[in-house]
Every structure is written in structure tokens, then in C-alpha cells.
């Protein structure tokens, strides 16, 4: 076994592991593990209706943002 192969194996596997670790840390930081019970129940309430609901909330947030944008850019006619 050449030392290059060994470096490659160690490097690739550690890198892949680190990517998975980063993903996990990201999930933790965004609060996806804050509520275990809900996390487990998530699968039970996962259908088209929930998707529509999520889309609706996204739209609401966007609308709110746009509204603020408009207010900020509002220039009275002088």
C-alpha cells in the first residue's frame, strides 16, 4: 500500500464525515431538534395539505417583506 492511497482514504472519509457533521450542526442551529415529540410526529402530518400550508406561510412572509419594502421605498411627491 502506498502512502498516497492511505492519505486519500483518510482524507476522503474524514471529509465526508465532516460534511455530515456540518449538516447535523446546521440542523441543530436552525432549531430542527428542539422538539423531539413533534419531530417524530412530523411523518404523520406530512401530506399535500401540509405542503400547501407551508407554501401559504411562505407567501405570507414574502408579502410582509414586500409591504415593508414598499413602505421604505415610498417617496412622497414633492
Amino acid at each position: 500500500m502506498s502512502s498516497n492511497i492511505m492519505i486519500l482514504m483518510l482524507g476522503v472519509s474524514t471529509f465526508l464525515g465532516a460534511v455530515a457533521l456540518m449538516a447535523l450542526l446546521w440542523g441543530l442551529k436552525t432549531g430542527q431538534f428542539d422538539d423531539q415529540s413533534k419531530f417524530i410526529d412530523g411523518a404523520r402530518y406530512d401530506n399535500e395539505e401540509e405542503l400547501r400550508d407551508a407554501v401559504m406561510m411562505e407567501k405570507k412572509k414574502k408579502a410582509q417583506k414586500e409591504k415593508k419594502e414598499k413602505e421604505r421605498n415610498y417617496k412622497p411627491v414633492d
Partner: peptide, 10 residues
């Protein structure tokens, strides 16, 4: 008018 609502079950 409600933009976000999350409830923690625990």
C-alpha cells in the same frame, strides 16, 4: 396577519 406560529409540543 399571522406570519409565523410554532408550538413546541414538549
Amino acid at each position: 396577519g399571522i406570519i409565523e406560529a410554532t408550538i413546541n409540543y414538549t
